[in-house]
Design a protein around this nucleic acid. Structure first.
Length: 791
DNA sequence: CACAGGGAAATTTTT
DNA sequence: TTTCCCTGTG
């Protein structure tokens, strides 16, 4: 079959992107333009051309995206009963997963930060705990130095490849200098615990590749073809990793075979250090890069796309690019003004119900919101309407108290230097190792500059402890030794499989008994659930174990790969020697790593018959026939934290754009007049994005019930308001005189629909409007939220 | 040393 | 409203 035939179902630009394999390539893929399709096809095309699969690397941001990509490539190349060797050794994974593997493999030999391969990946809670400990040791108060913001500063620094020294060198004012001290202490804690955080994964990998020519050469030689998805969301460290993996290509040539795919209009992670200029300046980095724009949308109906396009055009710092569909027809997006969040939730539930009656399955529907807190009311409404739903919150399970405890035990089993995890479990369930004992042991560890666990193993050397405390500690270390075979992972007492280890840890640690007793005394269903969760953890370990044996995990090949001695034979594709089954420790490491790197978006499972609830961020890359976006209010979307800067506002707009462009056929956006946030009811202003969409692109309906509700409850709400509450968000620029010609029809949130009689322009532009219900009113345009209703 | 109860604080988005 | 931290009592 000729190349043109294979790709007959692609558009011209898509085909060009698929077949342009040599040299740097930038694919500017608009929303819904078949981006994933192009990448998967491109991989298949490369393999079809004879490029060995193990020399291809595709990097994504979520495990889910990586999984889907791999699946699709496999179905193209292998299909039913095809040759599995055509995808052998293909690398498709997230930046973080690749980094974790590279560090596991190379960090120790390269001496990066003294990292040993059994390192622990600290999650956000562990980071906070570490920051708090450092604050305490520096005698700083958490009041003046909120751990959350300190953590954010450190994270930001790391994303810019700034280590503690560099940060200190840049610190000018007192506050920054203090943060620099905390940063230094934080780093020291992590290193001592043989732990790294999410940011370190990228930072250290970037450094590893930058500073170690040998490792860099290895990687560059292995991966001849590099592909990166969602390139607009790469941060500086990721940019460097990509750049170093790609290399410079042949001297005097066009450049390396690096293909990046992205859409500047969907850049929504700048708060995580993503640098949009990485994609905007790709052509500067690789002057001979080929650029291909994919503008045709295959996902949404024309009116939805039109609305999305109108909105995104309001962004000023943006390169305009076409976004179009050839398919006509479809309904306009609806915008509904609701009374409050409960009304909103009911409306959404009704809307879904109506779609269900039209034969649309639940799995085709989704609710998007700006902040996770908004999901609660929607959940209530869906539950009471017996609509099945799932929430995309992959990390939730692993954040459960009981699960965190069990995982902490496992982490200490894998890495005994992990003081944070040890601290979590040392007296959980209570085993008589109290505060004073703990402080004594921790002091000793600090003065000896060694891990706490090491001190505990030689507890007789530590003075000033009661006999009871000593025996409790010895009992604890004896228990750990049972599981690890005193660190050797050999011997009769050591579990033979991962799930057996997890099971024994849950049982022998006393966690199971503890939660069992708690459930018995409290009688709470939530406590009984904890036991189920522990059982669930065991079965998740079992699942992982089963997967681990059969999965063609490309990273598993990494420790073996060596170009001169490749485990693969190109001719017959057989593996030179089958790697031995991974020992328990390797399995445990891999398991803990997979657990640490799950993301919310990873659990989106469209196969189950349920409505999906998720944040707008998690929605990126997905599509649903029917979408409800809730909370379109000033302060929610755009979020109040984005109010002060134009750049932040534009990112919020992109977020709204991402949400709108997920919808294939039907889209409803809701705005509540009142919203209760952590017990306080506030009056809300509809999102400026609604105004920006304009009445032409949407169909608007006010279901908030006129002014009755507002009036009757307004005064009451005002008086009930505590003095600390900030009033309604700042007034945003209202309609301008220019946009409201005399005679046009307008809508006022309180007074309803009316006709403009006259306009006085000037500083305080006013309009006389004759309303159908309340008669003639004079309104100051800046404050009156008039929307034009064309008809 | 363990736990209960009260009071104060906190809330964006995520690998 | 929920979560966390501290203090006082058993």
């Amino acid at each position: 079959m000729r190349v043109t035939d294979i790709h007959a179902d692609l558009t011209d630009p898509q085909r060009e992107a698929v077949t342009h394999t040599e040299g740097p390539l930038l694919v500017l893929a608009a929303a819904g333009s078949g981006k994933t399709r192009v990448i998967t096809r491109r991989i298949a095309h490369l393999v079809g051309m004879g490029v060995p699969p193990w020399s291809i690397c595709a990097l994504t941001f979520t495990n889910k995206a990586a999984g889907e990509m791999r699946e699709r490539v496999e179905s193209i190349l292998v299909g039913d009963g095809g040759d599995e060797r055509r995808v052998r050794g293909l690398t498709v994974m997230t930046f973080h997963a690749l980094s974790a593997r590279l560090l596991r493999r190379f960090a120790e030999v390269s001496g990066i930060a003294g990292l040993k391969p059994d390192y622990t990946i600290y999650d956000s809670a562990d980071q906070t705990a570490t920051v708090k400990r450092v604050l305490k040791s520096l005698d700083l108060s958490t009041k003046n130095w909120p751990p959350g913001s300190v953590k954010a500063s450190i994270s930001k620094a790391k994303n810019d490849l700034m280590d503690a020294d560099a940060f200190a060198a840049h610190a000018m004012d007192f506050a920054t200098k203090q943060v620099a001290r905390i940063y230094a202490g934080y780093e020291q804690s992590l290193r001592r615990a043989n732990a790294i955080d999410f940011d370190d994964l990228l930072l250290m990998t970037a450094k590893l590749l930058r500073d170690n020519a040998e490792v860099r050469r290895h990687c560059q030689e292995r991966w001849q073809y590099l592909m990166i998805d969602e390139y607009q969301d790469t941060n500086h460290a990721q940019f460097l990793i990509a750049s170093l993996l790609a290399g410079e290509g042949e001297p005097g040539g066009v450049g390396p075979n690096i293909c990046v795919v992205g859409d500047p209009d969907q850049a929504i992670y700048s708060w995580r250090g993503a640098d949009i200029s990485n994609i905007l300046e790709f052509e500067d980095r690789y002057p001979k890069a080929k650029v291909i724009a994919l503008g045709e949308n295959f996902r949404s109906t024309e009116p939805i796309l039109h609305a999305a396009d109108i909105l995104i055009k309001k962004n000023t710092s943006r390169k305009d690019k076409p976004l179009f569909t050839k398919r006509p027809g479809g309904r306009k997006p609806e915008v509904v003004l609701c009374r409050d969040e409960r009304h909103e939730a009911e409306l959404v539930a009704d809307w879904f119900q109506k779609h269900a009656e039209d034969g649309i399955p639940w799995r085709d529907m989704a609710v998007f919101y700006r902040t996770n807190a908004l999901s609660r009311v929607i959940e209530d409404a869906l539950r009471s309407n017996t609509i099945p739903y799932t929430i995309a919150r992959g990390t939730a399970f692993y954040e459960r108290e009981e699960v965190k405890h069990a995982l902490a035990y496992l982490r200490v089993v894998a890495n005994q230097a992990d003081d944070v995890s040890l601290g979590r479990i040392i007296n959980m369930p209570t085993r008589g190792i109290g505060k004073t004992t703990l402080i004594r042991v921790a002091d000793e560890a600090a003065s000896r500059r060694c891990p706490v666990y090491e001190v505990m193993c030689n507890i007789n050397d530590v003075g000033g402890l009661s006999a009871r405390a000593i025996s409790a500690i010895q009992k604890f270390t004896a228990m750990m030794s049972q599981w690890t075979g005193a660190g050797t992972f050999l011997g009769a007492s050591v579990p033979t499989s991962l799930h057996e280890l997890v099971e024994r840890v849950v049982r022998e640690s006393g966690l199971e008994r503890h939660f069992d007793a708690r459930a018995a005394t409290s009688g709470l269903a939530s406590d009984a659930e904890r036991l189920d969760n522990l059982a669930e953890l065991v079965s998740s370990a079992k699942d992982f174990e089963d997967e681990f044996d059969v999965t063609a995990d490309p990273a598993a090949d990494l420790p073996d790969f060596d170009l001169d001695d490749s485990p693969f034979d190109i001719e017959d594709g057989t593996s030179a020697d089958e790697p031995p089954p991974p020992p328990l420790l390797a399995m445990l490491r891999a398991y803990l790593e997979s657990v640490a790197l799950v993301a919310d978006a990873d659990t989106v499972d469209p196969d189950n018959g349920a409505v999906t609830l998720m944040t707008l961020h998690a929605a990126k890359g997905l599509e649903f026939p029917a979408v409800a976006m809730i909370g379109l209010e000033q302060g929610m979307l755009p979020h109040s934290r984005a109010a002060d800067s134009q750049a932040d506002l534009e990112e919020e707009r992109r977020l709204a754009f991402v949400g709108i462009t997920r919808a294939m056929r039907d889209l409803v956006m809701t705005s509540a007049r009142y919203r209760t946030i952590r017990g306080i009811t506030e009056r809300m202003i509809p999102s400026q994005f609604i105004d920006e969409l304009g009445s032409g692109a949407i169909s608007f309906s006010d279901q908030a019930g006129g002014d009755d509700y507002g009036r009757d409850n307004w005064d009451e709400r005002q008086t009930n308001r505590s003095t600390t509450t900030t009033p309604v968000s700042r007034v945003r620029p209202g309609s301008t005189a220019a946009s409201l010609p005399v005679g046009c029809t307008v809508r006022h949130p309180q007074f309803g629909v009316g006709t403009v009689l006259s306009i006085q322009s000037g500083v305080n532009a006013r309009a006389q409007v004759k309303f159908k219900q309340v008669g003639i009113k004079t309104l100051i345009l800046e404050y009156a939220r008039l929307t034009r209703v064309d008809e």
